[in-house]
Amino acid sequence: MLNYIIRRILYTIPIAIGVSLVVFGLVHLAPGDPLSAVMGEVDQKMLAEMRASFGYDKPLPVQYLLWLGNSLTGDMGYSLRTGAPVFRTLIDSAVNTMMIGVAASLLGFVVGVTMGMLAGYHHGTWLDKAVSSATITGVSIPHYWLAILLVIVFSVQFGWLPSMGAGSAASMWSWEAWQHMILPVIALAAIPCAIVARTARACVMEILSMEFVEALRARGLSERRILLHVSRNAMPTVLAVMGLQFAHLLGGSILVETVFTWPGTGYLLNLAIFDRDIPVLQGTILLLALFFVSINLVVDILQTWADPRISRG
């Protein structure tokens, strides 16, 4: 097991290097000069000086190595737009995204697993039908549309909750900070919740049709014990699906964060794209990619623990 974990961690290194190459390559493949977009019309001499000071005059492989080396030490350059250090900006927005990402995951996971398991366990009843139609609605509604709807209903019509920003509370453990989180969290949780519920429902139904469930009944176990067995068997699959959803949420949603102007990575990415702010763009995409790589790592390890049949010695 430990062996497997170490090997699995080592595997992520080449993946991370590949990811950084792709990120760097993609951003530089885009036509046009990053500086001219920001600076507008200036004389060629000054542009050349600026280029040299940002290192954009060097060959691409050298630029890549410099960028990678600096990034590893936490120096990702400065934003072309605000001049603030990219690393600092990234950490701030990542924390913001993580706050609503973790909250949305918890909400989606708890509600999704509960509803999905109940629906699968009571297959064919009105509860199952209600959950099934709710989940189809959940995966079909675009989350930015849901976000706008939430704003219209709860901010505009009722005026109960703020529609913009993260508030100015000093601590995240205050009602004011939470108030700002509620709507974005609901908008973000809808899709993962529906996906997890569908997975859990399908999984539970499949497990209930297996012979060992009949064998457990034949042992005289209570329904509660049987439900425990069923959930233990469903866990690996549900965990894998939830892990991917969690990675998505931690990556931040450009659309939802933009609707709520929530200062997270998604909103940051949106600004960086429109401003052609290359250092910020590169840094954000790299961070999001690394999030995915590490969440996948954690999910893989959790799965080996949850399902003893996955033997990866």
Binding site: M210, E211, F212, E214, A215, L216, R217, A218, R219, G220, L221, S222, H229, R232, N233, A306, D307, P308, R309
Partner: peptide, 23 residues
């Protein structure tokens, strides 16, 4: 529940599918 397992027990044809795989 009291009858099953305690007074009457059952063994199945295919032990691989009749035992819970993750316990």
């Amino acid at each position: 529940s009291r009858l099953r397992g305690a007074t009457v027990a059952m063994i199945f044809q295919e032990p691989m599918t009749a035992l819970d795989p993750v316990f």
